[in-house]
Write a protein that binds this DNA or RNA. Sequence first.
DNA 1: AATGAATGAGAGTTCATTCAT
DNA 2: GATGAATGAACTCTCATTCAT
Lengths: 207, 207, 207, 207
Amino acid sequence: MAKTLDRRKQILKAAVDVFAERGFHRTRVSDIAKKADVAYGLIYHYFESKDDVLDSVFRDNWSIFLKVLKDLRDDLSKSVVERLGIVIDSLLEALYVAPAVVQVIIQEVSRSDRFVEKEKYEAFQEAFDAVQSMIEQGQDSGEIRKDVNAEIAPFILFGALETVCTGTTLKLISCDDDEQRRQLKETVRSMLLSGLIHEKGKDNDTI
Amino acid sequence: MAKTLDRRKQILKAAVDVFAERGFHRTRVSDIAKKADVAYGLIYHYFESKDDVLDSVFRDNWSIFLKVLKDLRDDLSKSVVERLGIVIDSLLEALYVAPAVVQVIIQEVSRSDRFVEKEKYEAFQEAFDAVQSMIEQGQDSGEIRKDVNAEIAPFILFGALETVCTGTTLKLISCDDDEQRRQLKETVRSMLLSGLIHEKGKDNDTI
Amino acid sequence: MAKTLDRRKQILKAAVDVFAERGFHRTRVSDIAKKADVAYGLIYHYFESKDDVLDSVFRDNWSIFLKVLKDLRDDLSKSVVERLGIVIDSLLEALYVAPAVVQVIIQEVSRSDRFVEKEKYEAFQEAFDAVQSMIEQGQDSGEIRKDVNAEIAPFILFGALETVCTGTTLKLISCDDDEQRRQLKETVRSMLLSGLIHEKGKDNDTI
Amino acid sequence: MAKTLDRRKQILKAAVDVFAERGFHRTRVSDIAKKADVAYGLIYHYFESKDDVLDSVFRDNWSIFLKVLKDLRDDLSKSVVERLGIVIDSLLEALYVAPAVVQVIIQEVSRSDRFVEKEKYEAFQEAFDAVQSMIEQGQDSGEIRKDVNAEIAPFILFGALETVCTGTTLKLISCDDDEQRRQLKETVRSMLLSGLIHEKGKDNDTI
DNA sequence: AATGAATGAGAGTTCATTCAT
DNA sequence: GATGAATGAACTCTCATTCAT
């Protein structure tokens, strides 16, 4: 049984690698098999179809990310900006640890027509909702500007992160040493979070 | 000759519609033909291949967008924040006027093989460069924070816009009346631009 | 258009031949293509699927046979036994003229799980009904014994004919010259029809 | 060893059920295994192949039927018509007692590749020969008409029975109570046997 | 220019059979 | 004996592209 799980993981790992390398559409099932060093048919022992392999990659990893998001949403001990910072850091950290996984989820799932499927849609929705919820918390407490639409903000946050991830994967953004990674995080935080808080001396709603 | 151009446009228009509707990969050449109400062999008179149809959609529209960007980059009469605001507004406006075109362009942006072709790569690069250049202008003049990496910022800007467009296309973001559109623009500006400028009273690097 | 029909017929004819030769299941689509001397894909231009090819063979030919049956059912100028004799003769004649078609219909459609499909079932039902109707006419007029169940009789008639056809196709029944064909018809008529009429001097229900 | 036989029978019984239900071609080895509630590798301990399972079903049951036929052929104490009546009754009785077995045997009879294998061919031939032999006995003794071809008659007899069985299995022929079964037998006897004997007063070959 | 029949390589999926445990 | 993971050949169907008319 443990072995069964191993095989499954072995195939999933190979699939992530080849999906990241060539894209889902260009990847043949035989490519996955070759990379995983298993027989063609075995993939159909563990998965329903090629689509199911991609879905599994998504499900397995997205649930982890979702848990992080939901925990942050419910962690009232931290400020909202602090928590959103952690969201950003987590994703960029994941990008460093498992770039192929992040790339596949972004390239082949979040983009692409797959997004349309109900199940996928709902998975994303949950993530968007969690961020929306945090922003609303911030607006209620006065921490975050009210002229930001809390429904739209998650699109901006995730969209920005998505493209940064892609840029990094494609080596358009350098991210090789700690200093570069620090700068990346700093830039994302500056652009996405500083715009959320009240500009000092401007729209302070003091009398 | 004029008729030739008409036919070409007729096909391109149909292509944009079906690509937007079903995605590039799911669209068959015969779908384009059916939508354009022409025999599908005809498509090969006007285009080299299915890919070439998509490329043409991209080229035709991207060049327009690129011109707007480059003009703004060179328009020193406006502040950088003002100009970036125009970038945002233009794109969201286009989204309202020709949603299918914008969606297809974004789809194209999102295709994982996009950077394989030199030509494509350069087209994107130019857009990114223009934004980078504006940000650098702002940093030189002191208008924009220096702790924002000017190479990374364009990814954030375009990524955010991309996802907002997708969300709008998929009706996840409502954009039906003027008020909703105003709010959308306001939110995007707040999040992406306010983070760029100096927070008053904090890190003003005064002389 | 005429050419289109020709192509379709060309493929159908080839399909009948290879189906008869190797059976539907053992026949690959490429076998049909090779036999018809057309490209593989062309078959899918004219037919939905391999199943559809078989269905078409059935539909095209069965409708002809069905018309014969229905016309006979409605031809009150002939005695029932005479008409049933014509049914038998027609089928055995068809077997002589187009053995492959008869064999395919019997082997691959009337037998086999295909029989279960509603559409097919109904096609057969009509034939069974026509025969049943003729037998009932004969029972009403006193020509045919009443202790024969008119619903069951068609099964016996068609079953016998079916197997005789198969036997002939497989060369287990010789049918090479006119004398052999005469004997075949005579035997089938004797066994299937003589049993239907009243045995003289036995159960004549005279007043 | 007894256990071995049990396992074998357990698998055969399951095989008969699923073959009857879905047909041989549509049945996967794993379906048999599932129905038999054994691991599907086990089937290959008891049988050479999927074909071998069907062959075994056939062999086991056909030999029984064949014995009945041969015993009847050699039982000169009964009239030929009486003995053929027993053939019919036996088969219809079997259909009532073990419908799945009868159906699978018939399916097997109907497989187009059945006559390819010598062994199979001979099995059928023996049954046909036995009936042919009985008819010839009847013709020699004057019990049966000479204008019936004794080689062809078995095809008619078995064909009719085959289709009646199929019709019953598919519930196209009702066979639920004793009266319906009586009528079924009566109809088959009337049609198949009454045609064999001399029509009274017609072609009596009187001295 | 316009048509759509014709082509055929390519890819996903199935499933009988084998084999290590 | 028993299990079910592993194998891979076989086969159907798709669809971009070509080409004769």
